[in-house]
């Protein structure tokens, strides 16, 4: 197990700044997810850790030693690539044993280890199969087994499940998490899928335009987004800036959107807040309605919940409710939007 420390990592490709001042400490045995959209620098950071790219500046320490000074092939990192990168000229067993062969491990020992790992990833009996004869999920497991065969100091995964269907992806996420816990290997997992990150990471590092926006446990980044980007990126959020009056309702463009009774009740002035769709409630519009009224633009069933999108002038609000009853509002209906501001999160300006 290893402790990795990144300090002010910068990477530029010509005039393009891919990473800016990335600093991060990863504890031994931790499962970290680097999360962000395309081009945010997450894969570049992973490749720098693996030694496939060199940082422009900054320090990278592994257990107190300078990792930057170590060549890629001597870093002892196990990496699963997005394309999986299995060796097509080798069969399953040879692929898994490859790293041990390069290290000069005795043939009997490396084949034994390959068979053991095949058992671990649930592919016993596939040892002699050509990799071309495997399904997507099986290839994925072989790639994981190959990376783990060398008993890596760091286990790196670059969007390994992006090409799989939803069911298989979820299944493998659980398997990888279990395997990582069992082996205790420090793992860095790159993904653009926030649900994937939420389901497997001990800590999520959200990157945007080459910078870390926020790093924290899945609950922290979901419930307490530190920036507007994180609030937007981590699931659906209703982000708006009402005016607070101590003890009174918060007003959006002069219309009440809810009355805080908790932390926000003594707030005064304009604050940008994020309210999750599940903390919005919709009421039928009556003559007495004085609150925020929106028009339903879209209703969709998401299995466990029903999502309703409402527009209020230029703004869009999203409401969700459990799908144990029929939708209360249809497209074109008008509804009053009430926010539970005790579950709102103030986004630091």
């Amino acid at each position: 197990m290893a402790q990795l420390s990144l300090q002010n990592i910068q990477k530029s490709f010509g005039s393009f700044q891919a990473l800016s001042d990335v600093s991060l400490d990863i504890a031994s045995g931790e499962f970290i997810c680097l999360l962000g959209g395309s081009g945010c620098g997450k894969t570049t950071l992973l490749r720098i850790i693996a030694g496939l790219e060199e940082q422009t500046s900054g320090q990278m320490m592994l257990d107190g030693d300078d990792l930057s000074a170590v060549q890629c092939h001597k870093r002892n990192v196990g990496m699963v690539f997005q394309s999986l990168a299995l060796f097509p000229h080798l069969n399953v067993g040879q692929n898994i044993a490859y790293g041990l062969e390069v290290r000069g491990v005795d043939k009997a020992k490396r084949l034994e280890r390959a068979r053991k790992l095949l058992d671990v990833v649930g592919l016993s009996g596939f040892f002699d199969r050509p990799v071309s004869a495997l399904s997507g999920g099986q290839r994925q497991r072989v790639a994981i087994a190959r990376a783990l065969a060398i008993e890596p100091t760091l286990f790196l995964m670059d969007e390994p499940f992006s090409a799989l269907d939803a069911g298989l992806r979820e299944h493998l996420q659980i398997e990888v998490k279990k395997l990582q816990r069992k082996l205790g290997v420090t793992t860095i997992f790159v993904t653009h899928d926030q649900n994937e990150a939420m389901s497997i990471a001990d800590r999520i590092v959200i990157l945007n335009e080459g910078r870390i926006e926020q790093a924290g446990t899945p609950t922290e980044v979901y419930a307490c987004p530190q920036t507007r980007f994180v609030a937007d990126f981590m699931g659906t959020n209703n982000i708006f800036s009402p005016e607070f009056t101590p003890g009174g309702p918060a007003l959006l463009d002069g219309t009440p959107v809810g009355t805080p009774t908790g932390d926000l009740k003594d707030f005064s002035g304009l604050y940008t807040i994020a309210v999750r769709p599940e903390y919005l409630s919709l009421k039928a519009v009556t003559d007495q309605t004085r609150g925020l009224v929106g028009t339903v633009g879209f209703v969709r069933h998401l299995g466990a919940s029903i999502e309703t999108e409402l527009s209020v002038a230029e703004r869009t609000f999203v409401h969700t409710m459990v799908s144990d009853r029929a939708p209360e509002f249809a497209v074109g209906d008008r509804a009053e939007i009430v926010c539970d501001l005790d579950h709102a999160w103030v986004i630091p300006s």
Binding site: F81, A85, Y98
Partner: peptide, 28 residues
């Protein structure tokens, strides 16, 4: 797929041997 060569590197193959261990066999 250049990531095959990168995979060989991360698995401990010295850069010059990547050519003989991975590139040549794939182009045989």
């Amino acid at each position: 797929d250049r990531s095959i060569e990168e995979a060989a590197l991360t698995l401990g193959t010295p850069p010059l041997r990547v050519f003989t261990k991975v590139v040549l066999p794939n182009f045989w």
